[in-house]
Nucleic acid binder design. Structure first.
Length: 454
RNA sequence: GUGGAUGUAGCUCAGUUGGUUAGAGCGCUGGAUUGUGGUUCCAGAGGUCGCCGGUUCAAAACCGGUCUUCCACCCCA
């Protein structure tokens, strides 16, 4: 036997059964996006590396899949550069394209490039795969789908609120219990400012992001290890201990960072969002979590993360506001906010909780048994008639043993089988067999369509 | 990227201190049943023991390398 074929690490094939379930998720998400007035776009799988590099932090650059240049690319590289054996430097010589890492940065590029054709505020959704050269684990793949919704060209906090409504609606429809965690980069900046480490915000937030995972002591350890001053870490402690309702947390943090202007702005923003939310009928719990940081460094305002309550799997949706993502591509003062649903993780959650509707498994509703040339000629117009009426139906293409044809129907979970031999043809009817009950009845085409349309 | 575990039939897994012809269940194919599937019974096919190399009279088993999957870290959807 030849060597078994395989697929790259962290990628997956999807069987028909799996695709039914995946499409259920995609369709649900899409439907909600459209109801809220978002329009669909797509961008290429690959972007110029110059578009991608430097947008996701140092770690992100490493996780980009790079595509080799076409042609005899290595002959153009000078010997000294080859001898240097510096992968990062050499990469810029032999690769100028990469697979997209997320949908937000390509979207920013899209907006800048098509700014004259876009009416702002621009509400778009985009459902496409992204690639990361990460080491795979459970719920972590090298190729996975993101479902992004963004509003760009509007500063209104109503957009943040609307995105929470979208989250609420999507997970209500999918029947997943979630909690939305929210924070604001301006508050985090205010905290950094207040403790006298304004320029170390990223290091501070990355550390405190791990609070509920590694505990307070380890967080403090990490902060000190990263060179944050001891008295600054000391000042941080009351913030790490915050408890109570969102309102109580906001009040306390407001006192602590009262001297910071950005911080006050962030608190004000959060208050506005919570006020909107309380007047709307949002069922999902929205929790202010001051330890939520999120790695992507283009976020400037609100940040979100959605966690499934009943499954340990990390976040299944995340996002935030970015005031100047288009700035790096030359379009200033365009603020956007967006979130991304992780379809693959949602799939894993739903599978674990057995939340997929049973009916959606069926595809074909009725199968015609093939008895031979004459019978086939009788069946084909009826088959066409069923299809015209929107009934998913098919005929077994070969006139083989009936056992095999019945078995096919059984395996494919087809609920009805249609038989037409000499007797049926003579009466101008067909025999309809219900595969679940085993019952059969002799019906004409009109009755057939009526029964199958149910 | 760092550290750990794993790999035997299509699938889930047995396989003793290294010893003759590597097994089971499920699935698959054929038959019992030529117009009746899902149940039952009978028969059959299917393996480079992940791959490459080493130790040995002898390797699925021991050693080295490599790849896959999984777990932790880093980071993240």
């Amino acid at each position: 036997m030849a060597q078994k074929p395989s697929i790259p690490k962290g990628t997956r094939d999807f069987s028909p059964v799996e695709m039914v379930k995946r499409n259920y998720i995609f369709d649900t998400i899409k439907e909600v996006f459209r109801i809220y007035g978002y329009q669909s776009i797509e961008t290429p799988a690959m972007e110029n590396l110059s578009t991608l590099m430097g947008k996701y932090g140092e770690e992100g650059d490493k996780l980009l899949f790079k595509i080799l240049n076409s042609g005899d690319f290595i002959s153009k590289v000078r010997d000294e550069q080859l001898k240097e054996r510096n992968s990062v430097k050499l990469t810029t010589k032999i690769s100028e394209k990469g697979l997209r890492y997320d949908l937000t940065v390509p979207f920013a590029r899209y907006v800048v490039q098509h700014r004259n054709d876009i009416t702002f505020p621009f509400k778009r959704y985009q459902i496409q795969p992204v690639w990361r050269a990460d080491r795979p684990q459970k719920g972590r793949y090298r190729e996975f789908y993101q479902c992004d919704v963004d509003v760009i060209g509007s500063n209104s906090l109503l957009n943040e609120v609307e995105l929470i409504q979208v989250v609420d609606e999507v997970y209500r429809r999918l029947n997943i219990n979630v909690v939305v965690k929210m924070n604001n980069r301006k508050i985090l900046a205010g905290i950094a400012e207040t403790i006298g480490e304004a320029d170390r915000m990223i290091d501070i937030t990355v550390a405190i992001d791990k609070l509920d995972k590694i505990g307070l002591d380890k967080v403090n350890e990490e902060l000190l290890a990263k060179g944050i001053a001891e008295d600054a870490v000391e000042k941080l402690q009351p913030i790490l201990h915050l408890e109570g309702t969102n309102e109580e947390k906001l009040n306390k943090i407001q006192e602590v960072i009262s001297s910071s202007e950005v911080g006050q702005k962030g608190i004000e923003e959060m208050r506005t969002v919570f006020t909107y939310l309380s007047s709307l009928n949002v069922q999902t719990e929205v929790e202010l979590d001051l330890t939520l940081a999120r790695g992507l460094n283009y976020y400037t305002g609100a940040i979100f993360e959605v966690k499934a309550k009943d499954v340990e799997i990390g976040s299944i949706t995340g996002g935030g506001r970015y005031d100047d993502l288009t700035g790096i591509f030359g379009l200033k003062d365009v603020s956007g906010v967006g979130i991304s649903f992780g379809a693959d993780r949602i799939y894993d959650v739903m599978l674990q909780l057995d939340l997929f509707p049973k009916e959606s498994i069926t595809s074909t509703k009725a199968l015609f048994i093939n008895f031979g040339e004459k019978e086939m000629n009788y069946c084909l117009p009826i088959l066409a008639e069923l299809r015209k009426n929107g009934i998913y139906s098919e005929i077994f293409p070969d006139s083989v043993k009936m056992k095999k044809q019945m078995n096919y129907a059984n395996k494919k979970n087809i609920p009805f089988v249609i038989l037409a031999g000499d007797n049926e043809i003579q009466e101008n009817k067909v025999t309809l067999k219900d595969m679940n009950s085993g019952e059969q009845q002799l019906v004409d085409v009109v009755e057939l369509i009526k029964i199958l349309s149910k």
